[in-house]
C-alpha cells in the first residue's frame, strides 16, 4: 500500500455539461513509468492535469503521496512542488534567462540559497545537455532546447513524480529525439513518470504500463509487452 504514490478512485469530471472523465480508477506505484495514449479529446491531458490540481475534479478521490486533493486542501502548493510537470507548449518564463527559469522556484518556493540553487540548476541543465545555453533567454532557443529546459526546470524542484503532457507534440521531427533522449535518461534514473504521448517507440522502450483512453474512459490498461503484442481490441 505504501508504495502506491498516486491513487485515483471513481473519479469523474465535467466541463459544464460535458463529462470529460468517466469513472477513472488508476493506481501508480513508485518508480513506475506509465504512458497514456489515445485519440485527441479523450481526456488524457485533463487526467494528468487533475493529478496536480490544475483542473478540479468533481467526484471521486485523488490521493497523491498520501494527501487527498480536495477543495479545501490548504497545502496544494506543497503537493504541486512534489509533482513536476512538463507542458506541450513548454511554458518557460520568457522574461527570465534559462538559468533563472530553473532557479526561480527552488529559491522562492523551497527557500534554497541562491548559490546552491544555481549549482543544482546547472547540474540538471547538464543532464539535458543545455548547460551552455544557461544565460540565454527562452526566445533565443530552439523548441527542443526549450522543452529540455522545461524538463530541467521541473527537475530542479526535485519532485517525486513527473507528469509529461504531450512533451513532443509541438516539436519538429528532428527535435523530438533530443527531448525523448532526455526523458529516457530520466526514466532510467528511476523517476516515477506519467507520460501522455503519441510516441509509441518511447512507450515500448521505457514504459512499464500503457493506458489507452477513449471518450473519457480508460479502455485498456496493460503491461507494455502485452499491450503491443496482444491488444484486447
Amino acid at each position: 500500500m505504501s508504495d502506491k504514490i498516486i491513487q485515483i478512485t471513481e473519479m469523474n469530471k465535467w466541463f459544464g455539461d460535458f463529462q470529460v472523465l468517466k469513472n477513472i480508477n488508476l493506481e501508480v506505484e513508485k518508480n513506475k513509468k506509465i504512458v497514456v495514449c489515445g485519440p485527441s479529446g479523450s481526456g488524457k491531458s485533463t487526467l494528468i492535469r487533475c493529478i496536480n490540481r490544475l483542473e478540479e475534479h468533481q467526484q471521486g478521490s485523488i490521493i497523491v503521496d498520501g494527501n487527498e486533493l480536495t477543495e479545501d486542501t490548504k497545502d496544494i502548493e506543497k503537493i504541486r512542488a512534489e509533482v513536476g510537470m512538463v507542458f506541450q507548449q513548454f511554458n518557460l518564463f520568457p522574461h527570465l534567462s534559462i538559468l533563472d527559469n530553473c532557479t526561480l522556484a527552488p529559491i522562492w518556493v523551497k527557500k534554497m540559497p541562491k548559490k546552491e540553487a544555481e549549482d543544482l540548476a546547472l547540474q540538471h541543465l547538464e543532464k539535458v545537455q543545455i548547460a551552455d545555453q544557461a544565460n540565454k533567454y527562452p526566445g533565443q532557443l530552439s523548441g527542443g532546447q526549450q522543452q529540455r529546459c522545461a524538463i530541467a526546470r521541473a527537475l530542479c524542484m526535485e519532485p517525486k513524480i513527473m507528469l509529461f503532457d504531450e512533451p513532443t507534440s509541438a516539436l519538429d521531427p528532428e527535435m523530438i529525439k533530443e527531448v525523448l533522449d532526455a526523458m529516457v535518461n530520466l526514466a532510467k534514473a528511476g523517476m516515477t513518470m506519467i507520460v501522455v504521448t503519441h510516441e509509441m517507440g518511447f512507450a515500448k522502450e521505457v514504459a512499464d504500463e500503457v493506458i489507452f483512453m477513449d471518450e473519457g474512459m480508460i479502455v485498456e490498461r496493460a503491461e507494455t509487452k502485452e499491450f503491443f503484442c496482444k491488444p484486447e481490441e
Binding site: R49, N52, R80, A81, L92, A105, V109, K110, A154, M157
Partner: peptide, 18 residues
C-alpha cells in the same frame, strides 16, 4: 498572458502572490 504561464507557475508550487 497565455494560460500556460499560470499553469507553469502553479505546477512549480507557487501560491497566488509568488
Amino acid at each position: 498572458l497565455p494560460r500556460g504561464q499560470y499553469d507553469a507557475a502553479k505546477s512549480l508550487g507557487m501560491g497566488y502572490w509568488k
